[in-house]
């Protein structure tokens, strides 16, 4: 199953199980979304549960909040994360705080899904990685899967979660585990172990990281597409890296991070997003505070550069296996 099919399947499972689950977004109804993640849901569950929304991201999220506080479980789509900003006020000032400010009288169980990340020559408005602007907000859970199996389990868990969840889908790995080697064709998920997705209902618990590769020499903390880039880097350099796929950025699996860094004594943080005030800064602070005496070298960050996402120079910008590999070698020499 591709990640698109897995996400579609998660919707399907939850809409069948729970009549309160409703799905809407721009082009998400009849057509099934520009990435086809909601294809067939309208035909199967009816227009009142899966429908097209006007082009108004604040409207989509604001309406979802209203429905959630009424008692539904909306799972809405923002067409690209780059277009979520009109909805930011509704997410930050409203969804994230409704429970707290009403002392639990009103709650907001809703999921806001959006494709993130680059690698598709989408330029600055189809490539951004927005996780840090949500992890910085109190009251939101933030999830980013790196494969179809997790995508399905995490989305089901997100829909069942009693609080608002920002569900970030790395679009470059919708169809296969892209590892940064843009000159090679991507192997489809159907040929990959993590593309073997169980049918029916299952959950992948939020707040739990996965070990994508066990290793002894250095810990790589990463998520989304970069998991596959890091795997390629380990393979190509021969460095025995332990690659932690965080899966949920908030709440964060601190135990898994500490266990790994205390074991390897070295840590590299990899993300596609721009560097300054990125989620990597949070990870560095945490590792520094809790693993300081185990560290044998300064933590390294491999990230996007602090410029708007480029169009033609995409492959100079996108953190490549070479860049991650260089960091691995550098940290072992330190």
């Amino acid at each position: 199953m591709s990640m698109i099919e897995a996400i579609r399947d998660a919707h399907d499972v939850m809409m069948a199980r729970d009549e309160n689950v409703v799905v809407f977004g721009e082009d998400a109804g009849y057509f099934g979304g520009v990435f086809r993640c909601t294809e067939g849901l309208q035909q199967k569950y009816g227009k009142h549960r899966a429908f097209d929304a006007p082009i108004s991201e604040s409207g989509i999220v604001g309406a979802a909040i209203g429905m959630a506080t009424y008692g539904l479980r909306p799972c809405v789509e923002i067409q690209f994360a780059d277009y979520v900003y009109p909805a930011y006020d509704q997410i930050v000032s409203e969804a994230a705080r409704i429970r707290h400010r009403s002392n639990g009288e009103f709650t907001c169980p809703m999921v806001v899904r959006m494709p993130v990340g680059g690698g598709i020559f989408g330029g600055q408005t189809h490539s951004q990685s927005v996780e840090a602007i949500f992890t910085h907000v109190v009251g939101l859970k933030v999830v980013m899967p790196s494969n179809p199996r997790d995508a399905k389990g995490l989305l089901i868990a997100s829909i069942e979660d009693p609080d608002p969840v920002i569900f970030l889908e790395p679009k470059r790995i919708y169809n296969g585990p892209f590892d940064g080697h843009h000159e090679r064709p991507v192997v489809p998920w159907s040929k990959h172990e993590d593309g073997q997705v169980k049918t029916g209902y299952y959950k992948t618990e939020l707040g739990k990281a996965a070990i994508a590769r066990e290793g002894r020499e250095v810990t790589i903390l990463t998520y989304g597409t970069m998991v596959h880039v890091a795997l390629a880097a380990a393979e190509e350099t021969g460095v025995d890296a332990e690659i932690i796929d965080l899966r949920t950025l908030l709440p964060l699996d601190q135990e898994a991070i500490e266990a790994s860094v205390n074991k390897t004594g070295r840590c590299i943080v990899v993300h596609e997003a721009t560097r300054t005030s990125g989620f990597g800064a949070e990870l560095c602070a945490l590792v520094q505070r809790h693993c300081f005496y185990a560290l044998e070298a300064p933590i390294i960050r491999v990230t996007g550069y602090d410029t708007p996402y480029p169009h033609v120079n995409e492959w100079d910008y996108f953190p490549s296996p070479e860049r991650v590999g260089e960091a691995m070698k550098q940290i072992l020499e330190a």
Binding site: G122, G123, Q124, T125, H126, P310, H311, V312, N313
Partner: peptide, 16 residues
């Protein structure tokens, strides 16, 4: 074409 003569230096999506 985002080419060497592109006034926007290959930054923007085509037609923007």
């Amino acid at each position: 074409y985002s080419n060497e003569k592109d006034a926007l230096r290959g930054r923007q999506l085509p037609v923007l």
